[in-house]
Nucleic acid binder design. Structure first.
Lengths: 212, 212, 212, 212
DNA sequence: CAATAAACGAGACGGTACGTCGAGTCTTCCT
DNA sequence: AGGAAGACTCGACGTACCGTCTCGTTTATTG
């Protein structure tokens, strides 16, 4: 008898497909996360949902924050494609309102998890910044660089500052001001802040004491 | 005449000055918060530090997030003064790097508390937005309005968008990118994003379907 | 001197008849006791029922056990009348099945209170034995003495042993064996144990150095 | 190779021997009980003493009374041996003054626990009567039956009444009258009450309409 | 192809914080 | 002046969750 695998028998036992099982657990994590939110998510609940044992969870992940973030990162994997709509405005709108955008109802839970976990565990923070935020930043950077080549971004603009600005403004409005993230909102932020700043470039001699 | 005991010493037992005890508890909360951070702060520890009973804590606050945020709000009360340094750049730098700024080591803990609690409890979120964020926004708004009168902000600029932008960018860098909030960083954000956007105003006909 | 007293005006406010208020509180105690039992009786509940403050309760009684027992003793006051039905059997039946008998539904709660309190507080135990059990024993003793004069009790019988025996047997059946205390049961105990022992007297000098 | 366990090391961690750990907890319970008494015994103290968590205690027992009584029952298990000294007097003396007798200093605490718990929880009362009191009664019954065969107990005697009588009398003296349970006292109760009643049998047809 | 070692599901466990509740003390307010 | 009202400290309660552990089974690897 086949131990199991693809075949749709849904057999009672199917251990060790190495990455397959892991994916199932992460999916279960996302389900629970979506249902009750980060704070009320328990390892027991995830274990039960995934028909896994808690030992298995702790064997693979350090704890709840790591599990949750791994689930989210897994879910957002492949979201790193650069849109390229032909304009900076279109690219950024696409990047912030597409799949895995901030209007996902789970995003609130997930960002809470991330902020909390990062504050608690610097090592985790480093990993998360490297593996999740880093790629996002890189995508954003590529979009801006491309726009600069088209002349939409001023040559003097410091992209290490402007690049993450849109994310910061939008996340702030979403989480602290409580506004839903709609394409309209993102568009207004682009028109009012990001695009003017990109187009006109920084103020002359910024933060430099020696200027005229 | 003193209503209580002998000497007016405010001795070992001083119940019910109504707001006095509450302030002591909130101070104790801040002490514990500063020592161990939000996640490791326990209600028992606060009660012990304040020489209060847990019942008293729960009589006044709904739980740990509310207590912590109340403590922080109490501590930051009166931070609503408008700086007025004569320029928008100076005002904003003063507002974001002065007392209660983001470089406070407790800020990370507190923001975790706030984001978590807001995600969990919409009622709390509303109260927090009204009583804590609202005044901050108002102060910021006043600074921008004043700058607009001086000609530093374009007449067409939508301050509901630009106003909270600086906070968003800075908080994002602090909490997600892990950068310390220094006056230099705030200055660069001002020069690269906020001030250019304010000076030049929004792109023509933003978010308006009817344009050329 | 009494500040006031007797007059039956039942005026709106009549504090301090000294023993009057106390009686009201004890009545309230009995009401609560009957409703929820000893363990679930709280001082707050008694205070609320009696429209008294907890401070008043603690001013007069040491704590919950004392209050409850005082209430019971107050309620049973005057139950010390000797029945005198003409026979030992009738006297004892009357004594154990009359008012304040063991078939009172509150008796279980009260005895729990008493046993618990006596085990915890030797001082209370002494007071209770002196003021409540003592009189009961005295009444019982009088009944047996009277019966001895009628020839129903053997001259050699030690009433310090036989006197409390009936109470012990009946209470044991009620509380540990869980049987209801009916006149039939008491009658059977009398016929099977108490009366034969009383009639025939003790075994001849067992292990007793001095015997006839 | 053995993964662990079996080897007689009795190592630091030995969960799940099913009844072994339970016994340890019950022993710890008895220790605490003996030290501070029933009322001052706390679940936390037992947990600490047994190096168990409170959750474990509550997983196995419903609450404090059940735990305490289980501990006592466990401790007295096997005390059901019938003495057989050759005489009813000797048997009963042995039964009431031997191991687990009433002169155990813990007995007071334990009986308080039992009476309280029985009054509070009828289900517990039933279990306790069945599993603890029942066997005691059975032993007592056997002693009396054996004595009846030797002619020490009158054929008409109702052992359902006489059987539990000694326990009732002795417990009453111990708990309500506050006397220590000494062999002398038990002997006097036997000579004054139990043995005469057993020897002479019940009064002829008491309160029974149909008799000669 | 059996034997072995690893990984698994299940879930009990020790530990800790939670939020509630009652006891007993205290002060203030009211009459 | 003295009692009602009720807030307060203290501490036990019973629950929930975390992260670790052991148990017995199942799976993949090896001799």
């Amino acid at each position: 008898m086949v131990p199991r695998s693809i075949s749709a028998d849904a057999g009672p036992c199917r251990p060790r497909v190495e990455g397959e099982r892991e994916r199932e657990i992460l999916d279960a994590t996302l389900e629970v996360l979506a249902e009750v939110g980060y704070d009320l998510l328990t390892m027991d609940a995830v274990a039960a949902r995934a028909k896994a044992s808690k030992a298995t969870l702790y064997r693979r992940w350090r704890g709840k924050p790591e599990l949750v973030v791994a689930a989210v990162m897994c879910h957002h994997a492949g979201a790193g494609a650069v849109p390229d709509t032909g304009s900076l405005r279109g690219d950024l709108l696409a990047a912030y309102c597409g799949t895995g955008g901030l209007n996902d109802p789970r995003a609130q839970s997930v960002l809470s998890a991330v902020v909390t976990a990062m504050g608690r565990d610097p090592e985790f923070a480093e990993v998360y910044r490297r593996d999740f935020i880093g790629p996002k930043i890189a995508v954003s950077r590529a979009v801006y660089e491309r726009a600069r080549e088209r002349g939409e971004v001023h040559p003097d603009t410091d992209l290490t500052i402007l690049g993450p600005a849109l994310a910061g403004i939008v996340l702030h409005r979403a989480f602290l001001l409580g506004e839903p993230v709609t394409p309209e909102l993102v568009g207004r932020v682009l028109d009012e802040v990001i695009l003017p700043a990109a187009l006109h470039g920084p103020l002359r001699s910024p933060h430099d004491p020696a200027d005229a």
